[in-house]
Design a protein around this nucleic acid. Structure first.
Length: 435
RNA sequence: GUGGGCGUAGCUCAGUUGGUUAGAGCACCAGAUUGUGGAUCUGGGGGUCGGGGGUUCGAGUCCCCUUGCCCACCCCA
């Protein structure tokens, strides 16, 4: 081994052919589910101006404060670019830049691709990870919130997750509601602040909502009886929430109201939700999302409502692994692509060039998975390799065949052979492979 | 950023109270009737035991440092 072998950067990994069987299945499932409700794919750049994220995610969010991959621009001292840590900001920016708020405000989009966060890697968390997300702009209809949730649930159902999937919902209210709630919480927590953990005391100043999901047991106890936003909602927000719950039920999704859900990013308003799969235990959260009616304005557009979610593939992969999903049959076609369909065998070295030419003809004729030996293997070893690769047919070329202008077409499974004119090989294979 | 665990063949791992040429399985290669396969059998290649220092007659085994990976906390997807 080389003394200083290069390694993939910490928190990143190579997706090798074997790994891509599962990944590609996740991707196609995402495309399919998004398509089912007419969401269209978008591909914003992987880098954005740093200030876009600072603006949309919140200056004091952990992501912005210490988790971004940022590179200085070369132009001026004020230019700076950041590898996207999430997909919503870029989508919102693209929506505004593309002029959609005016020419076609209602848009249903989705994205799928790598995101980057400079964090300490651990199980289910990488510095480069993949997210599948949807964003629906231009409507404040609570039925749209429900459609988005349903989409997320169906993604997991399509992968084989069972009926234990939970939709946990909560509401963040609008800005006014949240102002009232913030003051109520501060008034509630202030007297017992001295009995809480250091983190809570810091959060009290920075973002009082976070006290609600502190993991420390003692702190949790002191959360009992904290004012709930539900009781402080203005009539619009309350009506929205009720209609959202009703719409979910109309889709056959029974929501679980969970006041403990608090999103870490600043841009959420009203509906927020998480998809959980309790059999996974502490790592049961698979998806988070919600409504962010203020975001478009935040990134320079006119007031425009929006709702969406993001699903991280890392956690999804982990969960699938624990559950033994997806069933092998769902991956069979992708797995088969790693093998060969037709293997061209050269009996002696005299046929090696011609097997290459033969393979070329087959490929030009549209056949896929056409392979031959490039390592000087014996005829026997070539058949062995053909078998290992799962080839359905072998085309055999030896001195005799060459002299007669034919090839031997061997059906690997049936172990039957027939001689056919060399010129008809491609057509014969195409017919047998159903092409 | 803070803790903890682990680095032995390409992969997954054994390696006994420190003791001779460091092992297994899988994978790879080659044979087992000179032109026919996924099984079996036989054989083969391949390791500065992460790196450095120390203790010792002797270190893969013990100690220290370093580096990498993993796990947890934080936070979240």
């Amino acid at each position: 081994m080389a003394r200083e072998a290069h390694r993939a950067p910490r928190g990143t990994r190579d997706l090798l052919p074997e790994d891509l069987i599962l990944i590609r299945h996740l991707e196609r499932t995402a495309h399919r589910v998004a398509r089912s409700a007419r969401y269209s794919e978008i591909r914003p750049p992987l880098i954005e101006e740093t200030r876009l994220f600072a603006r949309s995610l919140g200056e004091t969010s952990d992501v912005v404060e210490k988790e971004m991959f940022t590179v200085p621009g070369r132009g001026g001292s004020d230019s700076s670019y950041t590898l996207r840590p999430e997909g919503t900001a870029g989508a919102a920016r693209a929506y505004v830049q593309g002029g959609f708020p005016i020419r076609a405000p209602f848009q249903k989009w989705y994205y799928l691709g790598p995101m980057f966060r400079y964090e300490r890697p651990q199980k289910g968390r990488e510095r480069q990870f993949t997210q599948f997300g949807v964003e629906a702009f231009g409507s404040r209809d609570p039925r749209l919130d429900a459609e988005v949730v349903d989409l997320a649930v169906r993604f997991f159902e399509a992968l084989g997750f069972g009926s234990e999937l939970q939709v946990r919902v909560n509401t963040m209210g609008d800005e006014e509601d949240r102002g009232r709630w913030r003051e109520a919480l501060r008034a509630f927590f202030a007297p017992t602040l001295g009995e809480r953990c250091d983190d809570c005391r810091a959060r009290f100043e920075r973002n009082v909502f976070r006290l609600l999901d502190c993991k420390v047991a003692g702190c949790r106890e002191r959360n009992q009886g904290a004012p709930e936003l539900l009781g402080l909602l203005g009539s619009d927000s309350a009506a929205h929430h009720r209609a959202f719950l009703s719409a979910l039920r109309a889709l056959g999704r029974e929501p679980i109201e969970d006041p403990g859900i608090v999103r870490g990013l600043d841009y959420y308003t009203r509906t927020i939700f998480e998809i959980h799969y309790p059999p996974l235990g502490s790592r049961s959260a698979l998806c988070g999302g919600g409504r962010y009616d203020g975001l478009i304005e935040e990134v320079g557009g006119p007031p425009t409502p929006a709702v969406g979610f993001a699903i991280g593939f890392s956690a999804t992969e982990l969960a699938l692994g624990e559950l033994g999903l997806p069933p092998a049959a769902d991956l069979a076609d992708l797995r088969a692509e790693l093998g060969a369909e037709v293997y061209c065998v050269a009996i002696t070295d005299q046929e090696r060039e011609e097997t290459l030419a033969l393979a070329g003809e087959l490929r030009r004729a549209g056949l896929t998975g056409v392979e031959l030996d490039f390592r000087g293997k014996s005829a026997k070893a070539q058949f062995k390799e053909a078998g290992r690769l799962g080839a359905r047919f072998a085309l055999v070329l030896g001195p005799e065949e060459r002299a007669e202008g034919v090839v031997v077409l061997r059906d690997m499974a049936e172990r039957r052979e027939e001689r056919i004119p060399r010129a008809e090989a491609a057509a014969a294979l195409a017919a047998r492979l159903g092409r």
